[in-house]
Design a protein around this nucleic acid. Structure first.
Length: 627
DNA sequence: CGACCACGTTTCTTAACCTT
DNA sequence: AAGGTTAAGAAACGTGGTCG
């Protein structure tokens, strides 16, 4: 470090950045970003590693020849698209075409699309490209998964040349399948060697213990890909998603119907692995039912996948999720889909954007979306992404308040458990509605601490003019009543909530006692005059209600229940008897003076005469005032 | 080598129940 | 009422054995 500082002092003694340029054009000036990129590239060179940047290392600027003699980067085909799109023709195998490289992307390089190199130095269709990347894999990545393809050079030319197609035809199916009696010395093998090698590397890299059946399935998968390449004239490096789906089909049955007769259904799963590793294919949701867990095992390794699933299960099991149990089968489906889409079997790489993409693009459906929710929660708990949205779009958001101050007071009151949760919720709901109304109509009263008796009077009077739908959080279920005056009971309920709120806050000394909430916020007579609101009650309902409230000594005044009500009234009778016993045991027997002084003849044994009944009575049913 | 079959596992769909 | 969780059963899939 001292040598570094001494060297800097020789260049420029002025204060500023530590590293300065030694180039003659801007000698002793701070290094610019472009120059820094060259410095970074010197590091692997100095370490005798491959000059090719690891695919994770996004180029900060476009490579070009320059005065430092570094020249153009080893091969532009290997670079991911830069953040600025300078290398837009280059892409990643797993991040999708045209997407910027992310740390979670696998380090496997490939051509971005068929038009890659359209600005190239020459026609590259026939050129052998790419380079080995093994030396670029740092120690950081050694414990992480990377494609087996990374350690090899491949000719990724787009076109299947005429001689290649001819060789595939000459070899014939029997040779291409490499059955026991195939001709290993046939000249066609040398011609299609560039196509065969990556397929062989993929097969060799799969974590799938070789058995007779598997070996045959893998060999047949290679044959299918070679034949298909010859048919369409382009190599698997550049097949589109549609072309892969066309090959893999929507499900096993359709594959069996469309694939060559000699290719068994077991071949399909190996073709998916090739599609993923060679063709950037991630349209798994278009392949119908297939075993994502098996595919993930083969590609990422059984131990690695199993370890990550177990890690996630541990979190979920701690929360009591069924998904956390070892016998659950939903979690592997979801997590393997995420690993495959992400190009990484590491939970650390699961970002919030991936979960959003899966939801938005419908990459998982049905109950798997619910498991996705749980997985995202668990990954969040592990510290790798953000929490999932509170709902997936169907739920009702928690009500909010118009003003921050009012909202804080309401939540503070709600958090103090002097009422049952249901009652506190009711008060909260009404107070939030009042808060929205105050914020819109009376912002001067948005702070409860500033309320006086005069404020109370003004607000109570104004509240009398509220209509249905005013300041509500949602209008579901009240569409047909919007704009109509609130019922008196509703207004009274709102005022009761405010009374309760100020009473509690004053009792807890949270607010100064400037007024008596019971008096200042009393429901005005203009509202109480509208109550009680008579309601028409059918005879049988009325009879049940009275039965519940009637003491044994009053029972002879009740009309004799008919047989249709016998069971019902008997249950009520038992209920009343049990309640009385409880009250007697607890010393809570109803005082005698609270009972009716004289047995009321109500209800009448005969329906009232409509002509003499009160005006509020229905002409068809008995009407009473419920208090 | 090809075909068939059996079996265990995985995936998908549906619905009930629970929570907000 | 909308949305999340769980369970169950059917269907699909993957694997391996066997036989001609």
């Amino acid at each position: 470090m001292s040598n570094c500082l001494a060297h800097r002092a020789r260049l420029n003694r002025a204060r500023g950045p530590l590293f300065l340029s030694e180039f003659r054009r801007n000698r002793a000036q701070p290094l610019i970003l472009w120059a820094w990129s060259k410095v970074v590239r010197r590091i692997p060179l100095a370490a005798r590693c491959s000059a090719v940047l690891h695919a994770h290392h996004t180029a900060s600027v476009s490579d070009r020849s320059g005065p430092d003699g570094l020249g153009t980067a080893h091969d532009r085909d290997l670079r991911r698209a830069s953040p600025h799109g300078l290398d837009a023709a280059i892409s990643t195998s797993l991040g999708g075409f045209g997407r910027q490289a992310r740390p979670r992307h696998g380090p496997h390089p490939r051509l971005a699309h068929r038009n890659a190199h359209r600005h190239g130095r020459c026609d590259r269709r026939h050129a052998a490209v790419t380079a080995r990347l093994s030396g670029s894999v740092t120690a950081d990545f050694e414990s992480r998964w990377c494609s087996a393809l990374v350690a090899h050079r491949f000719d990724t030319a787009i076109e299947v040349r005429d001689e290649g197609a001819r060789a595939i035809g000459d070899l014939g199916i029997r040779n291409l399948r490499r059955l026991q009696c195939h001709d290993r010395s046939a000249p066609g093998w040398r011609v299609i060697g560039r196509l065969l090698r990556p397929l062989e590397v993929v097969n060799a890299g799969l974590d799938s213990p070789v058995t007779v059946h598997r070996r045959r399935a893998m060999a047949d998968a290679v044959a299918v890909l070679l034949v298909r390449g010859a048919e369409i004239g382009r190599t698997f490096w550049v097949w589109s998603t549609e072309e892969w789906v066309d090959l893999l089909d929507r499900d096993q049955v359709e594959f069996r119907r469309n694939a060559p007769a000699w290719a068994g259904e077991e071949v399909r799963s190996y073709l998916v692995a090739h599609a993923y590793l060679l063709g950037s294919f991630t349209g798994f949701h278009r392949l119908g039912s297939f075993q994502r867990l098996t595919l993930s095992w083969r590609i990422f390794g059984r131990d690695r996948v199993g370890g990550e699933i177990a890690r996630l299960r541990q979190v979920l099991a701690g929360w009591g999720y069924r998904l956390g149990h070892g016998d659950d089968t939903m979690l592997p489906v979801v997590i393997c889909q995420l690993f495959l889409l992400n190009g990484s079997p590491n939970l650390e790489d699961l970002g919030t954007d991936l979960f959003e993409r899966v939801r938005n693009d419908g990459l998982l459906g049905g109950a798997r979306l619910n498991a996705l929710h749980a997985v995202q929660r668990a990954v969040t708990a592990l510290g790798f992404c953000d929490l999932p949205p509170a709902t997936t779009g169907r739920g009702t958001a928690r009500a909010a308040c118009g003003g921050q101050i009012w909202h804080e007071w309401v939540e503070r009151c709600y958090a103090t458990p002097t009422l049952t949760p249901r009652a506190r919720g009711d008060v909260r709901s009404r107070m939030l509605k009042i808060g929205r109304w105050l914020a819109a109509e009376h912002p001067d009263a948005a702070d409860p601490a500033a309320w006086t008796r005069q404020t109370c009077a003004a607000r109570v009077a104004a509240m009398d003019r509220m209509n249905v739908g005013d300041s509500v959080h949602r209008t579901t279920g009240i569409e047909d009543r919007l704009g109509k005056p609130l019922q008196a009971s509703t207004k009274d309920g709102h005022l009761a909530a405010i009374r309760r709120f100020f009473t509690d806050c004053q009792e807890w000394d949270l607010l100064p006692r400037r007024f008596d909430p019971g008096r200042a916020l009393a429901t005005p007579r203009s509202i109480t005059a509208a109550r009680p609101e008579p309601r028409v009650i059918a005879d049988d309902i009325w009879r049940r209600a009275v039965s519940l409230r009637t003491l044994p000594e009053d029972r002879h005044h009740l009309p004799r229940p008919d047989h249709t009500h016998s069971r019902w009234t008997e249950q009520l009778r038992r209920h009343n008897a049990a309640g009385r016993q409880r009250n007697h045991r607890g010393g809570l027997a109803r005082p005698r003076h609270q009972r009716p002084a004289s047995p009321s003849p109500w209800p009448p044994s005969t329906p009232p005469d409509p002509r003499t009944a009160p005006s509020c009575c229905s002409t068809t049913s008995t009407s009473v005032t419920v208090v």
